[in-house]
Nucleic acid binder design. Structure first.
Lengths: 335, 335
DNA sequence: TCAAAAGTGTTATCCTTACACCCATGT
DNA sequence: ACATGGGTGTAAGGATAACACTTTTGA
């Protein structure tokens, strides 16, 4: 029976990668005990630490014991991290040669790694314990997604930092196509609008432009620095895929409620939407949008943990009225 | 070197399936030489005929010779069918056990087949030759997609046929959840709105309800009949995935122009959108929507092949102005 | 009484939907 | 002239975006 689950042959191995996301209370900034701190959560991704570089949970597909990819994924994520994901959806299958380039393969042929990426969502798990340094096991932790992609945070009037914009323009040089592409993706021009869903394209542009750490690593040139936290292998690309998918999906399916508690105030819901999208949203228009969907219902109870006037608590109602599918939430940007 | 490209081991085999779609002139109905026949195209999918049941082009992934899935796909589609696809996009990776159930596997272990599905689009190829019965090769042909999914055609006031609605309600019985699901997906209730993107969910519901041929085949029970043309293995499910993806994508990316000729009249463009969506669209609102996107430009030339007043010819312009991404087309339903 | 956050009213503008009508060509 | 399809004007209704303002609590 050999190594169960190690599906290898002809230089191919099938593995599963998991982008497991949750919202966690943002740790209070040192020396700045903001009153609303609890209401501004942070989007985090589950990572393992297999020696230095953080990585996504990654495991072999076990064709003998698991009937489906999804079961396989749930099994190894729990084994590696002690965490049991809820909502799960396939992202993409990555099979390109060279995606893991500089690693020498053990055999005479190059080892070909095919990985099926999955997105999984979970409610706040700050109380539950992740596996830490169990023998022979990777250490699991929650890593803020915007630490990995700092340029994806547009809250607080956050523009693309000047040095990154300069780097992009330096790469583009006089190539008009490059300039246009960079300007469109990063909304560099005055009045241009930022599309939060295009996280993957932005990452890939930065990779191509040699502005992230992975470029140097994969080309075997230098260990150049770059913005954001680099991940192992092509995991940052997979994470960007997951972030883009989540940001898009929030707008047409009620997935945000996979990330929130049973009951929530509308401000908390808005905070969740802002953490996911990386945008500051317009309060009243967001509320009107939420009401229009009919996806939430007032519970009558109040939350007085907010510092100001107590807020009404709502809950998600699965009333998927209207012939169509259950919709998502409008994300009306502020400013 | 053995069978190059046959990636097998541990009971797993990786293959690629292709949903190659194009628009072709609908063959004139016998005895009804309609004048506008040329303007109403038909969405077709490339199929092979490996002994009786039509199948999608399916081939092994060749990890030795092909750097990427996409190259592998392009290679074997061309080899099998003589046809070279243009636009290509990954759909989904299917890995569930039992998806090919009744076939006895040769070895002691069950052969596990993982297939990566792809969507490919092509301009009208009615002039180019598909490979026909070359020795040792599958015969390729274009199969109308709506012959495979007759219930997906809502043009001409097409409602779900009464016998299918009855079959669904018979399956649902007094189970309210089943009734709601069927009613929502097939817009059975008065005034309910049909969502053309949900082709996969509709097919899966029919499969679950035992109303398509594949149900009986996979359960090994009877070779029951059912609406539409059954395909080999789970290829009808993959095709439904592709159809749903295409119908959705048309609305937010300019993919329709991957299917149309260099120049076209707005009526032809509308016919293409109707063939893809299975809807009858509102003429003027469709035009306004097209204009608003800025995706087409008038050429100044006229087409007098229409039977009435000559129509202006337009062409796709890749002017992806406006900071965001190039948009798709609005599909304003008629009636 | 004041800061902080909850929650509401109103308006201009745009897009969607829907109505009906005119225009240019071939037969 | 008339059938056939190409092409247009206009208006109601709803969604969106943007104004600023009132309410309720804790400190």
């Amino acid at each position: 029976m050999a190594v169960a689950g190690e599906a290898t042959a002809g230089g191919v191995r099938i593995g599963l990668s998991a982008v497991v996301m949750t919202l966690r209370p943002r740790p209070a900034a040192a020396g700045h005990r903001g009153p609303r701190a609890a209401a501004v959560p942070e989007l985090c991704v589950l990572t393992t630490d297999g020696g230095g570089t953080p990585a996504l949970p990654f495991g072999p597909f076990d064709p003998v014991n698991d009937r489906t990819f999804e079961l396989s994924l749930r099994r190894f994520v729990e084994a590696q991290t002690g965490f049991r994901p809820g909502f799960v959806e396939q992202l993409y299958t990555f099979g390109d040669a060279g995606r893991d380039a500089p690693r020498a393969s053990p055999g005479p042929e190059r080892l070909r790694e095919v990985s099926v990426g999955y997105l999984a969502l979970a409610r706040d798990v700050s109380t539950s314990r992740l596996l830490s340094s169990a023998p022979g096991r990777a250490e699991a932790r929650w890593t803020p997604v915007l630490d990995v992609f700092p340029w994806e945070d547009r809250r607080g009037g956050g523009m693309t930092p000047p040095d990154l914009a300069e780097g992009l323009m330096g790469w583009a040089g006089s190539d008009a196509a490059r300039r246009d592409r960079a300007a469109a993706l990063f909304a560099l021009e005055e009045g241009a609008r930022w599309n939060e869903e295009r996280a993957l394209e932005r990452y890939e542009l930065l990779y191509e432009a040699g502005l992230v750490q992975e470029t140097g690593r994969d080309r075997g040139t230098s260990e150049a620095a770059g913005p954001g936290l680099a991940l192992a292998s092509d995991h940052r690309r997979i994470l960007a895929t997951g972030l883009g998918r989540l940001r898009g999906k929030v707008k047409y399916r009620p997935v945000l409620f996979e990330l929130t508690a049973e009951t929530f105030t509308l401000s908390e819901l808005q905070g969740a939407a802002e953490a996911v999208s990386g945008l500051t949203l317009h309060k009243q228009n967001f509320r009107r949008g939420v009401e229009r969907t009919g996806l939430v219902a007032a519970t009558g109870r109040l939350s007085s943990a907010t510092g100001g006037r107590p807020a009404e608590l709502f809950r998600f109602t699965t009333a998927d009225l209207r012939g169509g599918q259950a919709p998502g939430l409008a994300l009306p940007a502020q400013r």
